[in-house]
Amino acid sequence: MTGSPHSTTVFPHRHLLGIEGLTAGEITTILDLADGYVEQNRQPSKKSSLLDGRTIVNLFFENSTRTRTSFELAGKRLGADVINMSSDGSSVKKGETLIDTAMTLNAMHLDALVVRHADSGAVKLLADKVNCSVINAGDGHHEHPTQGLLDALAIRRRLGSLDGLIVAICGDILHSRVARSNIHLLNAMGARVRVVAPPTLIPSQIDRLGVEIHHSMATGLKDADVVMMLRLQTERMSGQYVPSTREYFYFYGLDYEKLAVAKPHAVVMHPGPMNRGVEIDSEVADDLKRSMILDQVELGVAVRMAVLDLLTRDRRGTDV
C-alpha cells in the first residue's frame, strides 16, 4: 500500500456510475486518496502490489486513447492484470447484445470492469448484470465521473479548495457527459457553476441542476476562478448547432481577450483532445501559468487508482 493513505470515511458504493448521488464526504475520500497516488506516480518505481492477482477489463465500445490508457496505467500501477477490449475486436460487432457481453465477462470472475459506451445508461445496464465493480468511463451524454473527479483534484491542488469558487463550463454542454459530471461534483463541493454556450448547445432545464446559464463569454467568464473548455465535435459545426467553426471561435473560442474578465489567477482546463483554434486558442492552451491541461492528464491516473482501490476494498477484505 505504498503511498496510499488510509481514509476513515465510508465509501458505500460497489460501482462508480456517476457523480450524481455522491456526497461531498465521499468525493473528498476519493480526492484525498488520489493525492497519495499522485506522489506514488512521481516515484521512479511506480508500481505497488495492492491489486496483485486481480483482473480488470477495460471494455470500450467507443474509441478512446487517453481515458483507456489512463485506466490501463492505473490498474497496472496497482499491480492488477489489465485487459483491453474494444468493440472492433469483440463479438459485439458480431451482433452479441450488451447484456450477453456482460454475462460472458461476468463468468470470467473479474474484479473490476471499466466501460465506455456511446449510449446514456448503457453502463448502468451492464452494472446491473455483473458481480464485479463497474466504473463508468463515459456513457453517452450522461456522465464521465472520473473526469469530474480528476478535474476537481486539479482545481483543489492548484487553488486549495472548491468551496465558493466560480467555475465556468463553456461549450457543447448539450452533448457533454463531462459537463454533467462536473456540474454535480462542483455543486456538491460548494462551487458556483455557470454554463456558457449558445442556446442551441444548452440542454433543456439545465438550470434545475443548479447552474447559471450564460450565452456570452463576457458575462459567463466574469470573475471566474476556473474556466473549463469542452471539446466541440466538428460534426456539430455543420450548421446544425452552430453555423461554422469560424463563427463559433469568434464568439466562444477562448483567447486572452475573453479570459481577461476572469479573476487574475483564473486557471483554464480542457478534458482533451483539444481542437486548437475552435474552442481554444493555442496561446492560452500552452500557457503553463494558466493552463492545467497537462496536470489533468497526470492526475487522471491517480484518481483512477484511487477509484480502483476504493471499489475493490470490499472484496479484498480491507477496511474502508
Binding site: 446514456s120 445508461g121 451524454h141 450522461h142 454533467r180 440542454p203 433543456s204 432545464q205 434545475r208 441542476l209
Partner: peptide, 11 residues
C-alpha cells in the same frame, strides 16, 4: 426537460 438532461437522453 430536467429528467432527460440529467439522464443525458435526447429530449
Amino acid at each position: 426537460g430536467e429528467r432527460a438532461t440529467r439522464l443525458g437522453l435526447i429530449g
